[in-house]
Nucleic acid binder design. Structure first.
Length: 678
DNA sequence: CGGAGCATGG
């Protein structure tokens, strides 16, 4: 192929001499120009050609699809006197890779192609492009059909089809099929297929396997291989390993790029490492890659996660355009610091609000315990923007219901989900089950759980926790067994749920059985929640001696969670001496947590040791520990009413206290009570 | 003379 300069020279010459080159030559020139971004030049050549063949049409269509001029490309496609597979493939790949929502056009062209017969039969190029598209859309059933067609037409043996199939099955979240393709493939993999396989393992959380593949013939690894591994570490919470790989890349003489830095920024955010984040930021500025939206939002995310909202804002002001993820990071950052006014102001200033931004604002409200605002914002938004809703936002809203323990908004959201026909995946179903369980309706939780077509570990975990929460320990055990039968491997969260089930009824034997099964059968190392559960269990079963022995055997430094449980166990078993010793340790760790002082104070009060209680309360004031005021609340209609102790601020306070008085009197004389609500 | 695959966000 010519260099661009030679092409231009050649064209100038033939114009000067009045010589007309062959179609093939002009086709090559059109191709050369389009590859270098000279679409206008290519167009001119095309327009002035006396004769054209199918290559000519393909070259000019290619020029326009690559320049994202789809209407022009489509017009040329429609006008082309003859079309072959390449003509179709160009259009399909153009629509498939477009950022807009033109995917259906790619699918329609693919379907149209089936009627073309010999002239334009779908080939390996068509099938890999289509696999790429269904991977992007996560349409597993279409992917399977394309795989079938590939096998039928004998197009499943090349490295291209191999990598596309691995990628498609991996992105459609069926690792089982990835392995089938991998095991059925050839002995030798090219680099792209290898990289696709490493990425698939990382996506599945199979890091050991990913590492094994990566370090097999490491000399062929390229920047993509390294980026894949780094991203895999970050996504699986191994930020330190990612940073090691990042440094190692430089040693091996491989150059970092935007993908590398995007993952590294994400690692810095997770580690809350402002220092490393700033170093990455400096490198990014030097390389001039701030215009990449992944990078700019990543930098903002670092500052915002580290709580440095001043610098986050400075960066935010500099970047243009401000993409949704940058805005979202700012809102989340403000919310985490409790700057809800700033968060709201930024949110209101955004003219084009999409679901990413809305979800950030809603999640900010939920996390700062302003569930009412979250609901209000949602209903306001939903009126004018009903099509722009996604699952994550509903998961946040359901989280708000769970925190408030208010079932009515939860039910409304559930009904709404049905009405808009959103895809009910495991995550959404889990959020619904959790909401119903924590809002007190285990029956609905169960119904939703059994309505799910497939159940993953998280879904089992929330259901088991739901049963435990409601004291249905038998159902919890049964579900745990069912989960094992279906080949799911329990994790630490499962055991917290199952141990809680034991704890509620003081079922010591069962608890001990599950606790040892966790460490021995599943090699899960217990965390403080597990230890706390066991101590609580012994406490409730009035077996303080066992709790004491258990405490001594805990291999980790007891933290506030463990000591808190132990203190409760002492309280339940009326061992004030031991409680006092625990108290000192606890206050050493958590001197600023007011709730601890209250816990201690109530322990002494229950023993009638008023002097001790006074001593603790004094100590609390001395340390300026603050306890959040406990409150009760009730949802009526669309309003939330909250009440704190001896609170008379409610607008209906007189009527409320009158009703309360009436209720108390009714209870005292043991009479049926009739109350009319407003 | 042409067309395809792997790595980065809530």
């Amino acid at each position: 192929m010519w260099a661009l300069k030679d092409g231009l020279k050649f064209q100038a010459n033939f114009i000067k001499c009045g010589f007309t080159p062959s179609i093939v030559t002009i086709n090559q020139l059109i191709h050369l120009y389009s590859k270098n971004g000279f679409v206008e030049e290519a167009n001119k050549l095309f327009d002035e050609m006396p004769d054209r063949n199918v290559y000519t049409w393909n070259a000019i269509i290619n020029a326009h699809t690559k320049a994202q001029n789809f209407s022009k490309a489509q017009n040329l496609f429609d006008a082309a006197p003859s079309k072959d597979s390449v003509t179709y493939n160009l259009m399909i790949s153009g629509y498939a890779n477009d950022e807009g929502c033109e995917e259906d056009k790619a699918v329609n062209l693919f379907l149209q192609m089936q009627h073309e017969g010999e002239k334009a039969r779908p080939d390996e190029f068509t099938l890999t492009t289509m696999l790429n598209l269904v991977a992007k859309l996560r349409f597993l059933s279409w992917g399977r059909q394309l795989h079938g067609l590939m096998v039928k037409t004998g197009n499943n043996q090349s490295q291209f089809s191999l990598s596309s199939l691995i990628d498609m099955y991996s992105k459609c979240r069926t690792f089982h099929d990835v392995m089938r393709v991998y095991d059925g493939g050839p002995c030798v993999f090219d680099l792209v297929s290898k990289n696709a396989m490493v990425a698939a393992c990382c996506r599945e959380g199979e890091l050991d396997m990913a590492e094994k593949l990566f370090w097999h013939k490491p000399e062929i690894n390229d920047v993509v291989s390294w980026n894949t591994m780094i991203a895999g570490y970050v996504q699986n919470g191994h930020e330190e390993a990612a940073l090691d790989m990042f440094k190692c890349m430089a040693v091996k003489g491989l150059k970092w790029n935007q993908h590398t830095l995007a993952s590294i920024l994400s690692a810095c955010s997770s580690l809350k490492s402002l220092k490393m984040g700033k170093q990455a930021h400096a490198w990014i500025l030097k390389e001039g890659i701030m215009n990449n939206p992944f990078i700019s939002s990543g930098v903002i995310e670092v500052y915002s996660k580290c709580g440095d909202m001043k610098d986050a804002k400075n960066v935010y002001k500099e970047i243009m355009p401000q993409n949704s993820f940058a805005i979202s990071s700012m809102i989340v950052g403000y919310s985490a610091k409790g700057y809800m006014t700033e968060a709201r102001r930024l949110f209101d200033s955004v003219t084009e609000k999409n679901s990413v931004i809305l979800t950030a604002m809603i999640s900010g409200f939920v996390k700062s315990n302003q569930s009412e605002e979250a609901f209000e914002l949602f209903s306001k938004f939903v009126e004018k923007n009903a099509e722009n809703l996604d699952a994550l936002m509903f998961i946040n809203l359901l989280g708000a219901c769970t925190i408030q323990a208010t079932i009515d908004p939860g039910k409304q959201i559930h009904a709404y989900l049905f009405r808009i026909g959103i895809e009910m995946d495991e995550v959404l179903i889990s959020a619904l089950v959790d909401m119903y369980a924590k809002c007190g309706n285990i029956k609905y939780a169960k119904q939703v759980f059994y309505s799910a077509t497939s159940r993953d570990l998280v879904l089992y975990n929330v259901m088991i926790a739901g049963y435990a929460h409601h004291g249905h320990e038998y159902e919890a055990y049964q579900l745990f067994e069912e989960m094992l039968k279906r080949g799911l491997r329990p994790d630490g969260v499962t055991f917290i749920a199952i141990l809680s089930a034991c704890r509620h009824r003081g079922l010591v034997d069962a608890g001990e059985k599950y606790f040892s099964s966790m460490t021995e059968d599943y090699a899960i190392s217990p965390e403080s929640d597990h230890y706390a559960c066991m101590i609580d269990l012994y406490g409730r079963a009035n077996q303080l001696e066992k709790a004491i022995i258990f405490m001594e055997r805990i291999p980790i430094q007891p933290d506030a969670v463990i000591l808190g449980s132990f203190l409760n166990a002492c309280k339940m078993n009326r061992n004030v001496e031991l409680a006092k010793a625990t108290e000192d340790k606890l206050l050493q760790i958590e001197g600023d947590n007011g709730a601890r002082y209250v816990q201690l104070a109530s322990l002494y009060a229950s023993e009638g040791k008023w002097d001790e209680k006074g001593r603790i309360m004094k100590k609390m004031r001395g340390n300026e520990a603050k306890k959040l005021t406990g409150c009760s609340w009730v949802h009526i209609g669309n309003r939330l009413h909250t009440f704190t102790s001896s609170d008379r601020s409610h607008s209906e306070t007189e009527a409320l206290y009158a009703t309360l008085k009436c209720l108390i009197q009714g209870l005292q004389v043991n009479m049926p009570i009739e109350i009319e609500f407003l």
